[in-house]
């Protein structure tokens, strides 16, 4: 019950939304790993955004490289240099931009496809629902890396195709999750009430089903980002990345192509590898915490 006298219902509805956001935030804050992940993630994102300010893009140029060939860490190059004398630190920091960008964009695309297919297949059902489910099953059982390699080979190597391919191989899990939640919400009496009020499918899906599905989608999206980043790194490491840009995977690809392992050039392999590990870890921590906030069953509370 509210105590204040309302000015406009819409403004006050926003006030209530802020309140419920504050409640979720408090539940999230109570989870230590989630907070560690969030701080870590914040630091990485800020670093990635600020990289052009810290290090000039010319540091990535092969022709303007100043360092020695695979030189170990020194005062001038804190993380050593690669086979043409570029700073590994500069490469890793610039690589973070691309890895995060591809990871996030691919996740957004995958989530949009997955949610749309999941909600419609669960709500509409029938022939369409069966068909959509079979398609998503098909994508789920295909070995994603193999499909991604095949698609990239056909579509050509560029950032856009990489994003598209990663999204294509990872939307089906979200579809499953969203469909299951849709079917649960579908049978709630308030949907019956909405139908009796005269609501069409669009109203039911956008006003009732989607708001009940979105929190879970958000949590699963956070868990999808690290796998998208890993997939991008794997593809780039296999030499299927965009050749014109630097990502963590492509650094590792160059390192192994140029014999960094036999040269014992650990400074060439470890920074991008650890960066991938850190980002994946940070996203996982945030995702798990979000899942616990939005799925009360994981918190051990009645829903």
């Amino acid at each position: 019950m509210t105590t204040s006298t309302p000015t406009s219902p819409r403004a006050l509805a926003w006030a209530r939304r802020r309140q419920s956001f504050a409640r979720s935030w408090a539940a999230y804050r109570a989870q230590r790993t989630g907070m560690i992940g969030l701080v870590l993630l914040g630091a990485i994102v800020i670093l990635a955004i600020c990289t052009p300010v810290i290090i000039d893009e010319s540091a990535l140029s092969v022709t303007q490289a100043t360092g020695g060939r695979m030189a170990p860490p020194s005062a001038e190059f804190p993380l050593g240099t690669d086979e043409v004398g570029r700073s590994i630190l500069a490469l890793t920091l610039w690589g973070s931009r691309l890895s995060l960008l591809i990871g996030l964009t691919a996740t957004v695309v995958a989530i949009v496809i997955g949610t749309a297919v999941g909600v419609t297949s669960g709500h509409v059902g029938g022939w369409y629902g069966w068909f959509a489910l079979r398609i998503s099953d098909w994508f789920m059982v295909l070995p994603s890396l193999v499909v991604a390699i095949a698609l990239l080979a056909v579509l050509g190597r560029s950032m856009g195709t990489t994003i598209l391919v990663i999204a294509l191989v990872s939307w089906s899990g979200t579809t499953r999750l969203v469909r299951a939640q849709t079917l649960t919400v579908q049978n709630r009496p308030y949907l019956e009430r909405a139908r009796a009020l005269g609501a069409g499918h669009w109203h039911q899906m956008t006003k009732h089903i989607l708001p009940n599905v979105l929190p879970l989608v958000l949590a699963s999206a956070t868990l999808l980002v690290p796998s998208a980043i890993l997939m991008e790194s794997s593809l780039a490491w296999l030499g299927l990345g965009d050749p014109n840009v630097v990502s963590w995977g492509s650094i590792l690809n160059r390192a192994s192509d140029n014999g960094a392992v036999s040269a014992h050039a650990w400074w060439y392999l470890l920074p991008p590898g650890l960066a991938i590990l850190l980002v994946v870890l940070a996203f996982m921590m945030c995702g798990r915490a979000l899942e616990a906030v939005f799925n009360p069953r994981l918190r051990g509370e009645p829903a």
Binding site: P189, Y190, E192, R193, A196, K207, P211
Partner: peptide, 13 residues
């Protein structure tokens, strides 16, 4: 013609 359901807890989102 409008409907009133049995369980008001479930009938409200």
């Amino acid at each position: 013609v409008q409907l009133v359901l049995q369980d008001p807890s479930g009938a409200l989102n």
